[in-house]
Nucleic acid binder design. Structure first.
Lengths: 221, 221
DNA sequence: TGTCGGGATCCTGTATACAGAAGTCGCTGT
DNA sequence: ACAGCGACTTCTGTATACAGGATCCCGACA
């Protein structure tokens, strides 16, 4: 009656619903599905070559992640961020990513540090504009993972996805400062320096916020 | 092609999947479904008098909320909190609820204050032990709502549910101090005193943590 | 007695079917 | 020309069907 922890052959099998969830999320995050676009189950299902069932389950998940809005008997649509949403995202990110950096400095093990380093390596090598946002999100996600706090990690993922997506709406991508700030943050985490890690993470988010606000101002012209 | 905002007749209709989600969540939060219990779709569906489809969608939602764990081809089970989970919850709650209280003091409008006051009134009147945990959760949720930050509100709900559920596993309910602390926090929010609200919220979570740890210690005897 | 197959059974993953609400569009009457 | 009305179409909500993996039980064999 209890569920067990052993690996079976099929436990590596990825259900269609997960592939579908990832693919729809990817389309939203890349702008292939712009805000307001309706997610018609039939069309998506045929498009992806699956039945409606996995699509429906994917939509529920994306709705709880905040990327999709559902109206009863009207269906789902890609969420529309309000202008204030970006600012609100920064408010939450400061709190959570500051905490994540502090805890990562306190508790990151070798494996976690290796994953962080790997993302940084990729980021250094990345030229493609599209990949930059993804790698940025992955770095911050890995910091949350390195914090060893499951709840934090679980919350930060969707939060960063929403951030990446809101920024996309204003055709915003952060300048190259991001990489050097990431490297400093990594160094502080690797050194176990909690206070520096916290300060650097907070400053990093604050810098991203300023950069974003400046970008939005420039759009207003 | 765009989705619109008008009310139609059916927009007040609550889909079965939402009722099912709420009911399963309730059973988990009350302990009717203890950790490790498998969530067999057929059985749940028959039990609730619906088909498997709404049950499946509910399970996906509860999985992203962290109350349920899913293994491919093995099915879903009520999650099992690790002992460290409680401590991790407090870490995150300090960060998020501190922020929520500060923002609520800055931005709460009359409607939000009225809702907070209503919850406090209920809490004052509550004797039943079962309702205490629910009302506590509701108060904190309303503070997050009053912050005016959608992301914060959206994240705090599931977080508090997990907290309520983890505490249930140790048969823990906080003593009556909670109400007076809530009332002080409410007063600070209503007065627009950000610093006091922040400090009170942080102290409140810290007190809850101490109380919880003492309780766990006492169980060890 | 222990353990090693080999079905029987349970359950998930996925697809299909059908009822009814919501949206669309043209027709009719003025 | 245009407003009102009604059939048609589209889509969601929900149920049912079926294939194959995972688990369990039991008997055979060491």
């Amino acid at each position: 009656m209890q569920i067990m922890s052993e690996h079976t052959l099929g436990s590596s099998h990825v259900p269609l619903r997960d592939l579908v969830t990832d693919e729809i999320r990817r389309r939203i995050l890349t702008g292939a599905l712009p805000p307001g676009d309706r997610l018609v189950e039939d069309r998506l299902a045929e498009d992806l070559g699956v039945s409606r069932n996995p699509v429906r389950e994917a939509i529920r998940v994306l709705a709880t992640e905040g990327l999709v809005e559902v109206a009863p008997r009207r269906g789902a649509a890609v969420a529309r961020p309000r202008p204030a949403h970006a600012e609100e995202l920064f408010e939450v990110r400061v709190a959570l990513e500051g905490l994540a950096a502090r805890l990562a400095a306190r508790r990151a093990d070798d494996a976690a540090l290796a994953r962080l380093r790997a993302v940084l390596d990729e980021q250094r090598a990345a030229d493609q504009v599209g990949a930059v946002a993804d790698l940025n999100t992955r770095f911050h996600t890995e910091v949350a993972a390195a914090s060893g706090n499951d709840h934090l990690h679980q919350m930060v993922g969707p939060l960063l996805h929403r951030a990446q997506w809101v920024f996309l709406q204003t055709a915003y991508t952060r300048a190259g400062d991001s990489l050097s700030e990431h490297e400093k943050l990594f160094a502080a985490i690797a050194a176990g320096d909690e206070e520096s890690a916290y300060a650097l993470a907070v400053a990093h988010v604050a810098a991203a916020r300023r950069s974003y606000l400046a970008h939005v101002e420039s759009l207003a012209d």
